[in-house]
């Protein structure tokens, strides 16, 4: 039995989104959608987070911020790119200051399409990411086991 799937805490960061997706991420927390049903809590602190939800495209200024936040999240962790801007840059992809989707800065596990992404699809994206989170944990455990097995062998 694993608890990871039952208690994903999200960290939300607005990269260069127009706010449309941001407020939809927040709307997920509120009574109509209420993601706390799935144990999802918006924790606002990278050190406590499991799922990194990013909206908007990457620009030169927030690249470092996003990498920094990503590094602060303890393993296992997944990244969900919400909205078309986070996926590819969207309508702003030709802007000089946008270097593309979130995957140009950090590895992305789930892409949620839409402009603005609907709360239903955001929830779906986060729930899908939980499967990946579980896989990552299994891999992490496996690595730990092989490591200890290796030391014992010696």
């Amino acid at each position: 039995m694993t608890y990871l799937k039952r208690s994903p805490w999200i960290l939300h960061y607005d990269a260069s989104s127009c706010n449309g997706c941001d407020i939809e991420v927040l709307a997920c927390l509120t009574p109509l959608y209420d993601v706390e049903r799935f144990g999802i809590v918006n924790c606002g602190n990278p050190k406590h987070a499991d799922v990194f939800v990013v909206t908007g495209g990457i620009n030169e200024q927030n690249k470092a911020v996003i990498r920094n936040l990503y590094d602060q999240i303890p393993d296992p962790k997944v990244v969900v790119a919400v909205g078309i801007c986070a996926t590819s840059g969207g309508v702003f992809r030709e802007c000089y200051n946008i270097s593309g989707g979130i995957d140009t800065a950090i590895p992305v596990d789930v892409y949620v399409p839409g402009c603005a992404a609907r709360p239903e699809s955001i929830i779906d994206g986060i729930v899908q990411s939980l499967g990946i989170l579980e896989e990552k944990r299994a891999k992490m455990l496996g690595r730990k086991r092989t490591k200890t097995a290796g030391t014992e062998g010696r």
């Binding site: 039952r6 208690s7 706390e36 499991d50 602060q72």
Partner: peptide, 28 residues
């Protein structure tokens, strides 16, 4: 609390899931 806010709220055992998860995570 969730009911007071007009929400369904998490499962009753949610705090245990949360703590269980915290022990599954990396300790930075």
């Amino acid at each position: 609390t969730a009911r007071m806010q007009g929400r369904a709220g998490p499962p009753l055992l949610q705090p245990f899931y949360d703590v269980g998860k915290l022990f599954e995570k990396e300790n930075l």
